[in-house]
Design a protein around this nucleic acid. Sequence first.
DNA 1: GTATTCCTAATGATAGGACAAAGGGACATG
DNA 2: CATGTCCCTTTGTCCTATCATTAGGAATAC
Lengths: 249, 249
Amino acid sequence: MTISTEELFMDLDRSGPIPLYYQIARRMQEAIERGDLAPGSRIENELKLAEHLAISRPTIRRAIQELVDQGLLVRRRGVGTQVVRGRLTRSVELTSLYDDLSISNRSPTTKVLLHEEMRPSAEILESLTLPADATVLHIKRLRFSDGVPFALLENYLPPEFLTLTAEQFEKHGLYQLMRARGTTMRVARQTIGARVGTAEEAQLFDQKPGSPVLVMSRTLFDQSGHAVEFGEHSYRPDLYSFEVTLVEK
Amino acid sequence: MTISTEELFMDLDRSGPIPLYYQIARRMQEAIERGDLAPGSRIENELKLAEHLAISRPTIRRAIQELVDQGLLVRRRGVGTQVVRGRLTRSVELTSLYDDLSISNRSPTTKVLLHEEMRPSAEILESLTLPADATVLHIKRLRFSDGVPFALLENYLPPEFLTLTAEQFEKHGLYQLMRARGTTMRVARQTIGARVGTAEEAQLFDQKPGSPVLVMSRTLFDQSGHAVEFGEHSYRPDLYSFEVTLVEK
DNA sequence: GTATTCCTAATGATAGGACAAAGGGACATG
DNA sequence: CATGTCCCTTTGTCCTATCATTAGGAATAC
């Protein structure tokens, strides 16, 4: 029943900057994804795990909690902790589309269709919590995967990003540029829906007029709670979809 | 700068079954939603909060973490914890559509279009991790909000739910029925996309043929990691959308 | 035999302490 | 005046410890 975990968790780096609970969580995650921890199998109980790894129970609990939050493990009081049975899917995280594609070796490219300063609408002002006389950067980009256009990205950025150039947006993802300027993203609120594509979208996506598009609008907040992006994106639905993992608390 | 928190957190129930951290988290959430904790304001530091509430730091930390996970607060080491600036939106949680609508007083009704035992396709068998000779319950429901049809719900349930009747599905949501039978939902994996609606969908949703639909497919797992539902849902996109809150770890 | 009660094993909640790391401002120094 | 250094504040990590609650099986009573 209980699988051997001894070898898997040796060589924890206790001096480096990476937290112990994080090191353990990553190793368990890899073990599950490799199949070393079979779906449905129970993992050792928390006290024994703590003893074997020579760490405290709160630390191993925190590591386990990470994987529970990812939907890889399920805990039951009085019983134990089990690996969820079922295929693995990577869930939506706070990474950009560009990062996602780069990771899966899809060679994303970007064409900037519009790059202007503007006085935004009241709705966008409110989303970004800016004063009424503020100027924002308005950009519109077409994103390609292996040369095929599949996403139209329209974004509004607060004044501190006015200096970003069209050339930079051709070469880098928005989040890369934000990170490079010291902005740390923390929270994003997204709404996902669908509608009939506009004439522009149909033409750009090489689809018939009246074809559906998947749409997502997002407000992104940085580490101090300020809104740093408002975006309205549309996707060719046969080439893109969202994955979400939900965990009951 | 720092707001008064004293009055807000009196009368904690230390003997009842509701955890302290949860009571505190709820009160802070209500305070934020009421506006008593203004967007952008810093809350008291953890040590002082713990002292004022006469609880330990781990407990107040856990309460704060709840709200960070909900995207209501942001923490920064060396600085403090702040309320996120920006409108509030309720995020997707592991509740059913029926529950969502009930809560918002929308009087959902359901019409069962199909209710049959069947031998599922290989894809569904794999999603539910069932043996090849298993029989499942296949249901197809049309969901109305205030009399307007807006969602077509097709579900496949493992053998233990074969006894659920069409009448039950007319009166109750799927998750209500599952809960009543002792099943506790824990993890759901969803894919959200869009496509052209089928002829059936166009007719049921009272839309023109070729209109777009928002689609969601979901596999749901219970507390022991078993798959207990596979569903493919489609929604009238002008009447329904998904909200997601993402938090950087 | 069946139902109830009890026990055990496991996770859940809470406490309290110690030290580390990072942000930001004050201060000193070039 | 600009730049670097130190220090204080605050959250991050990790520890030990204790009791509560639950699930499930074992033992018991009827």
